[in-house]
């Protein structure tokens, strides 16, 4: 276990360096800058701007300046907003993470129970119904689902606020809009793998020993059947926490996803690079957690490692 963690962290360093360099070079090659507008400022002003943001330095000097900041965990300042990127991440990421976590809990709770119940009642009306809903949910993108939820729950019924974070009730719609698609995927994964496990010999043994059906399913089948779900959860967690741009926009949540998109639109080079590196490290961390979780869920993996 220790070796796994240390190995992954050592591996992360070159990966992040490549991500940083790619981000830096791509943004250097992108046309336009954060100060572009229809009207071009006089040369004096352009000179002052370039000087203030060190854009007149040679690119290797700029590269080193930014990189040495990263080594001190200082991601620099956004060119467009002249605001510390560390501060933006510190303030905005917890919002994305909270919404993501609620959505994830919802997705796991709903997805796993639906999937397992459907598997244990294979080919029943419940199974068909649940899988039909899952297919529907998977095919509905959040930019359709979000406004639909606003329309029904806020505009028609007036039960929940239409947007913005304002009290606990305002988390419900965004978490639903974000989590439903994942809940549906998890339900389908869980159903398929539990069905697979149910046909195994050891389940037959458990049944033959006279265990109750509930215990067979929830204690033996689910534990083994969750493995593909856990595999899926790693990247899903990362993408749920980072890919919330659409939901953050629809519900005006002060999360991080929107910053990445607006920074790209504004050609805000430092911001884009910093967020790329941040998201890359987040993704690697999630994958590491998944690997650790494998060992916990499946004793065979743990044994094989030690």
């Amino acid at each position: 276990m220790k070796r796994l963690v240390i190995g992954r962290i050592l591996f992360a360093i070159p990966v992040l360096l490549v991500v940083f360099s790619l981000g830096f070079l791509l943004m250097k090659k992108t046309p336009g800058g954060p100060f572009d507008a229809e009207k071009r400022p006089p040369p004096e002003v352009e000179k002052n701007l370039r000087k203030r943001y060190h854009l007149d330095d040679h690119w290797t000097k700029q590269y080193w300046r930014e990189l040495s900041g990263y080594l001190r965990f200082d991601l620099g300042k956004s060119l467009k907003r002249e605001q510390s990127i560390n501060e933006i991440i510190r303030k905005a990421f917890p919002v994305s993470a909270t919404i993501g976590l609620i959505a994830l809990l919802f997705a796991v709770a709903v997805g796993v129970s639906l999937g397992v119940l459907a598997a244990s009642r294979q080919n029943s009306w419940f199974d068909h119904g649940a899988m039909f809903i899952a297919i529907m949910a998977i095919s509905t993108p959040s930019f359709v689902l979000g406004p639909l939820l606003v329309l029904v729950a806020s505009m028609w019924l007036g039960w929940l606020p239409a947007a913005r974070l304002d009290g606990a009730s305002s988390y419900i719609l965004p978490a639903l809009a974000l989590g439903l698609i994942y809940a549906a995927s998890i339900a389908r994964l869980a159903r398929a793998s539990v069905l697979d496990v149910i046909r195994q010999d050891y389940i037959r043994t458990a049944r033959a020993k006279g265990l109750s059906e509930g215990k067979v399913i929830w204690k033996h089948a689910v534990r083994a059947g969750l493995q593909p779900v856990v595999t899926y959860l790693g990247p899903a967690t990362a993408s749920i926490m980072t890919g919330g741009f659409v939901v953050e926009t629809i519900f005006q949540l002060p999360g991080l996803g929107t910053y990445l998109v607006t920074a790209a639109k504004d050609s805000d080079a430092t911001m884009v690079t910093a967020l790329m590196v941040f998201y890359a490290s987040l993704l690697m961390m999630m994958n590491l957690l998944v690997d650790i979780a494998y060992g916990w869920i499946d004793p065979r993996v743990r044994d094989a490692r030690s």
Binding site: F35, V45, N48, Y53
Partner: peptide, 10 residues
């Protein structure tokens, strides 16, 4: 002032 690099200084 040049150091403030005001975009609308014009």
């Amino acid at each position: 002032h040049p150091a403030w690099a005001v975009r609308d200084a014009e």
